[in-house]
Write a protein that binds this DNA or RNA. Structure first.
Length: 352
DNA sequence: AATCCGGGGAC
DNA sequence: GTCCCAGGATT
């Protein structure tokens, strides 16, 4: 039964699997050239909690700028963060850089072909270690991501709620593993989760494994997997300052702390982020920006100020988060800095 | 086991 | 507005 499951899935994948920049489709089955582990690793880190469409441009940029792991290891962290800016979850970029250096210093620039050793790399957890093992080295690894959790929770009509159900789903997925083409199989499941076994409105009528699925075609299939309700976001507010120098041709930019939210990324100075509305400022009001993080809804009141007035404001006891790492930058040169999306919004507002 | 950590596309 | 996406690190 499980043999037929993987066979039908792989047949579907051979005809319907997507062509992706980092993918060597069906290399185990057709003796195509093996994928570059560096490409597999880079794409998997970028794809953590991020959709394929978003990743494509960043993947192209990174592979062009840093064609191999040695090149990436030699880069400065600021360069890597600048290239990653806008992609989110910036610990991924810091760990990516750290991992590249680790691969070069400890493994001679070669990714280990062992799931257990891959798991020890910075930024590589259970999913990514299994994915690299299967996709880059065609090793028999149990690859379980959000798509695959959804598929197997439906196949066996699992009533347990995520995330507590993860361990049980992992064991279910293990039963269905094939005896060959491990990398293709993992990618086939993920493509199936995107194209057929979608969160809403799954296409059970054309699903290649519908005959093995308890919930195929059922009215309530999209209620699986069941999930524990999530907490509401904190609502925080702040003042953000677009501070211009005496010549009126540069703005004040600074580096955020190494750890925590947007760690080591660049920002325009802001007051502490608090639940209550921040105090009004005697300055030009540029407007209000709302930005949604994973666990925070942030409202930014943006003010334009000249440097002397800003200094007077700060010296007068108005609380502003200031970094030791400050610099003046021409607005049209901000592309060279690691600005996260919320700061790009501030920039756009100030420049228009 | 809970919480922190981005951003955007689909609906 | 809600959901969720090729999750990992930290506590």
């Amino acid at each position: 039964m499980y043999v037929k499951f993987s066979q039908q899935l792989l047949n579907w994948y051979d005809d319907n699997g997507r062509d992706l920049p980092w993918r060597v489709k069906n290399y185990a089955g057709r003796q195509n050239i093996a994928p570059d582990p560096y490409h597999v690793w880079l794409s998997e880190i970028m794809l953590q909690q991020t959709v394929v469409a978003t990743v494509k441009d960043y993947y192209a940029k990174f592979t062009q700028k840093w064609p191999n792991v040695q090149a990436l290891a030699t880069a400065q962290q600021d360069e890597v963060l600048t290239a990653w800016a806008g992609l989110g979850y910036y610990a991924r970029a810091r760990n990516l850089h750290k991992c590249a250096q680790y691969i070069c210093s400890e493994f001679g620039g070669n990714f280990p072909n062992s799931e257990t050793i891959l798991l020890t790399l910075p930024g590589v957890g259970p999913y990514t270690a299994a994915a690299i093992a299967a996709i880059a080295f065609d090793l028999n690894a149990n690859v379980v991501d959000g798509n695959i959790e959804r598929i197997f929770s439906r196949v066996e009509k699992l009533e347990d709620e995520l995330p507590a159900a993860k361990a049980k789903i992992y064991k279910i997925a293990k039963k269905y593993l094939p005896t060959a083409r491990y990398g293709d199989y993992a990618q086939a499941l993920m493509d199936l989760g995107t194209a057929i076994c979608r969160p809403k409105n799954p296409k059970c009528d054309i699903c290649p494994i519908a005959e093995f699925c308890v919930l195929a075609g059922a009215e309530n299939v999209q209620n699986y997997p069941k999930k524990t309700p999530k907490k509401p976001k904190k609502q925080l507010k702040t003042n953000v300052f677009w501070v211009k120098n005496a010549k009126n041709d540069q703005v004040l930019l600074q580096k955020r702390p190494e750890k925590g939210l947007l760690g080591n990324m660049m920002e325009f100075p802001s007051s502490p982020w608090l639940p209550q509305k921040p105090a009004e400022v005697q300055a030009k009001n540029l407007g209000l920006i709302t930005h949604i993080f994973t666990h925070i809804k942030l409202e930014m009141q943006v003010w334009e100020m000249a440097e002397p007035e800003f200094e007077t404001l700060v010296n007068g006891g108005f609380e502003v988060n200031l970094s030791a790492d400050k610099q003046w930058v021409k607005p049209n040169e901000l592309d060279g800095f690691a600005l996260p999306s919320l700061m790009q919004k501030v920039r756009k507002l100030a420049e228009t």
